[in-house]
C-alpha cells in the first residue's frame, strides 16, 4: 500500500514495529496486525467504548485514534492486564459478580473500570456509573458491572 508510515508502539509491554497506512485505526492495528482481538469494535461514532484500551495509562477509544498517533506510546489492551491465575481485580470482579453476559463489551468495560480505579480508589456507585458512561452494554443493565467494579475497589 502506498503511503505507509513506520510506527513503534509498546503494546502490553512488547515493542511492536510496523509500517502502516496512516488511516489504519488503532483498533484495527491491534486486532489485525497484532492479532489482539480482545479489543472489540461496537460502533462507528466514538460512543460504545467496546474498543477501550489504555494509552500511556489513560482510557481511550481505539477506534478514534490512528495507529500513527499512538507511535511511541505504551498501549495496554485486555490481553495485557491479567491472565488466568493472576487476574486483575477488575477482571475477577466481573467474574465473581456476573458482570458480563455476551462478553462483547467486557474488555472495554474492564479497561474503563481499571482506568476509573486508577484515578479513584474508592468510587461511589454514582462515580462508577459515570466512570463507565463511555461504555455501552446491552446485556446486563449495568448493575452487575457496577457490583464488579465495587468488588475490585474493595479488593484494592
Amino acid at each position: 500500500m502506498a503511503n505507509e508510515t513506520p510506527v513503534s508502539i509498546k503494546v502490553n509491554g512488547k515493542e511492536e514495529q510496523r509500517d502502516v497506512e496512516p488511516r489504519l485505526l488503532l483498533a484495527h492495528f491491534l486486532r489485525e496486525d497484532l492479532g489482539l482481538t480482545g479489543t472489540h469494535i461496537g460502533c462507528d461514532t466514538t460512543q460504545c467504548g467496546a474498543c477501550t484500551v489504555l494509552i500511556d495509562g489513560k482510557s481511550v477509544k481505539a477506534c478514534t485514534v490512528f495507529a500513527v498517533q499512538a507511535d511511541g506510546s505504551e498501549v495496554t489492551t485486555i490481553e495485557g492486564v491479567g491472565a488466568e491465575g493472576e487476574l486483575h481485580p477488575v477482571q475477577e470482579g466481573f467474574w465473581e459478580e456476573h458482570g458480563l453476559q455476551c462478553g462483547y463489551c467486557t474488555p472495554g468495560m474492564i479497561m474503563s473500570g481499571i482506568h476509573l480505579l486508577n484515578e479513584n480508589k474508592n468510587p461511589s456507585e454514582q462515580e462508577i456509573r459515570e466512570g463507565i458512561s463511555g461504555n455501552f452494554c446491552r446485556c446486563t443493565g449495568y448493575q452487575h458491572i457496577v457490583n464488579a467494579i465495587q468488588y475490585a475497589a474493595k479488593k484494592g
Partner: peptide
C-alpha cells in the same frame, strides 16, 4: 464533555 475516554483524548 462526552465521556471519560473522550475527555482523555
Amino acid at each position: 464533555i462526552g465521556d471519560p475516554q473522550v475527555r482523555n483524548r
